[in-house]
Amino acid sequence: MTTSPPLPWTGADPYAAALRTGRGPLFLRRADGWLLPLEVERWCARADQVDRQVLDRCEGAVLDVGCGPGRLVAELAGRGRTVLGIDVSAAAVDHTVRLGGQALRRSVFDPLPGEGRWGTVLLMDGNVGIGGDPRGLLDRTARLLAPGGLLIAETAPVDVDERARVHLTDAHEAVGAPFLWARLGTAALLRYARGWERAGQWAAGGRRFVALRSRKASSSAEPPKSTAVISSQRAG
């Protein structure tokens, strides 16, 4: 597997600026002008009660895909859990590290430490949309997890299944480069989850979640042996 190039939005000023200030507004904008507000303030705050309830379900070593500014990584690290965040944004990785978490600047489709050995993979805050290819993302996640490992995904609060090319934009109309994204409600995610066992679904605080358990043995693997191993592989 070769390392993928940085995604076009990773250097987008609107996203980096929002993470620096800890507030929006920040939106995903489709070509037709439709805007999806992004919850920057919540992402940059400490893990809330709903987040903590999700994290209580995590098993083994945890990989937070699209960790953003790192609130979930920091919460798990504070509990003494082995956890690694990955994000394509340098600003997000830097923020996570400042909170005391371990993070790498990587795409989920890049080579990653511990492939095939993670106990839990998190796809929170709409990250089931990464790459605009839900089935491809689920297949990749299955290869990251240990056999019987757990995927916890946050789905859209409405019944939706769409893929679109979007931009990041702020109130001043600064715009990043376009990238592919998907929005999935719970029913849509479950349709794509062939080969997974359903491990639960629930709603809390106006948010919706699905837990899926991998069935197939994974072929790889360097185990996430320790925090030291994870730390030594941090990307600059």
Rank of each mutant, 00 (worst) to 15 (best):
D170M: 05
P111V: 09
L7F: 06
D159K: 07
G176K: 01
V166P: 03
A146K: 09
Q201G: 10
V93Y: 02
E154D: 10
G22I: 11
R30N: 11
G131F: 12
S231P: 06
G129P: 09
G101Q: 05
G126H: 13
G132P: 07
V108F: 13
P223D: 03
G70F: 03
W196A: 09
A156P: 04
Q49L: 13
I152S: 00
V40D: 02
A92R: 01
Y15L: 15
A171R: 08
A45W: 05
W202M: 05
L84R: 03
G206T: 09
V73P: 03
P157Q: 10
R194W: 14
A235F: 11
R207H: 08
I152M: 01
R52K: 07
T141G: 06
Q102W: 12
A31E: 15
P223R: 02
Q102I: 15
R52Y: 00
L28N: 06
G206W: 08
L35P: 10
D133E: 15
K216G: 10
S226K: 06
D139N: 15
V175P: 04
S232W: 08
P134L: 11
R234G: 12
F209D: 03
Q53M: 13
R42L: 11
A74I: 04
S218G: 15
V108M: 14
R106D: 05
G176E: 01
P8I: 00
T186W: 07
T96C: 12
